[in-house]
């Protein structure tokens, strides 16, 4: 369990984190969202014990990060932003060093090191110095050090930043695998990532929490929630289709993209318009290339809340 109460960090002229309170329970994957400079990294650094809060408290599995920092750190696996490592060390040497600090010994040490090396596919680069590795491998080494001691709590600061799509997929699969029995907090500004791995999203702006909900319910706040989007086979029918759709009583507004020959009809609050639009199209003889129901746009909600 992670618990923070009124967590605050002030620098001379700037309040980076301002009274942040939340709790995360086992099995939850919390996505920490926010624009750059919103206070995501500062909050995570306070949880990890790297920065001391100005006021407020935080605890990891019951260990207060100020009163019992070693207990809190022992329960935690942490990937700092940018995944810094000791570049002159070999991968094997580095993971061995972390295993020593984490007090892994004997058979358990071999088993855990073997597990993370397999899981993150580091076998081939074990004897290379970390400086010679690609960005994707370095990130994987950083992740390996965070999970080598099988901690109950994982805090990962932008775990997929700078990775290619395949590597991103791998890291998300890893997070989903571990999600069942761990508490995981990740920060990101990639919204698709929240939908891919998080069971809960906290949006933070200017140091304060401005939204805390499931990704689906956040997306439902979008004005595109339950909107119907359709693409015409013949772009010449665009103007006629627009007028007809806009005349439907449950439609609040129609947006048009001339380039794509696409109409998007936004419903009035709570209304469902898919059937009405589909029936209208067939009655009026508009031939459709596609027709779909939107669940809502997280990026639009994000912009609306944080801008």
């Amino acid at each position: 369990m992670i618990k923070t109460q009124h967590l605050t960090k002030r620098y001379e002229s700037l309040t980076a984190v301002d009274g942040v309170s939340f709790e995360v329970s086992p099995g939850e994957v919390l996505g920490f969202l926010g624009p750059n400079g919103a206070g995501k990294t500062t909050t995570m650094r306070m949880l990890a014990g790297f920065i001391t809060p100005t006021s407020g408290t935080a605890s990891i599995c019951g260990h207060d990060v100020i009163e019992d920092p070693l207990g809190a750190k022992a329960a935690l696996g942490y990937l700092p932003e940018g995944a810094p490592v000791y570049g002159e060390m070999t991968v094997a040497g580095f993971l061995g060093f972390i295993a020593d600090l984490r007090r892994l010994e004997g058979a358990r040490r071999r088993e855990r090191l073997g597990h993370v090396i397999e899981r993150l596919q580091l076998r081939a680069v074990l004897d290379q110095t970390i400086d010679t590795l690609s960005k994707g491998f370095r990130r994987r080494v950083g992740l390996a050090q965070a999970i080598v001691h099988d901690p109950p709590v994982l805090i990962l600061d932008e775990p997929t930043d700078g990775l290619d799509p395949n590597q991103k997929h791998e890291v998300r699969a890893l997070i989903n695998d571990m999600a069942r029995d761990k508490i995981i907090v990740i920060s990101t500004h990639i919204l698709e990532e929240v939908e891919a791995v998080c069971s809960r999203a906290v949006i933070i702006a200017r140091g304060r929490i401005v939204a805390d909900d499931t990704p689906a319910r956040l997306a439902a706040r979008s004005r595109y929630h339950n909107a119907v989007s359709l693409k015409l086979e013949q772009p010449t029918q665009l103007a006629a289709a627009r007028a007809a759709v806009a005349a439907l009583p449950a439609v609040a507004e129609v947006e048009v993209s001339e380039r794509e020959a696409r109409l998007t009809a936004l419903p009035r609050a709570g209304a469902s318009i898919l059937t009405a639009v589909a029936e209208l199209a067939s009655a009026r003889g508009f031939r459709l290339e596609d027709l779909r129901l939107e669940s809502g746009r997280l990026d639009e909600v994000f912009r609306g809340i944080t801008a």
Partner: peptide, 14 residues
């Protein structure tokens, strides 16, 4: 400069 201090200081060491 390399940021590795953050890695070191978030291990359970004084």
């Amino acid at each position: 400069n390399s940021g590795s201090i953050e890695l070191l200081m978030t291990q359970p060491v004084l």
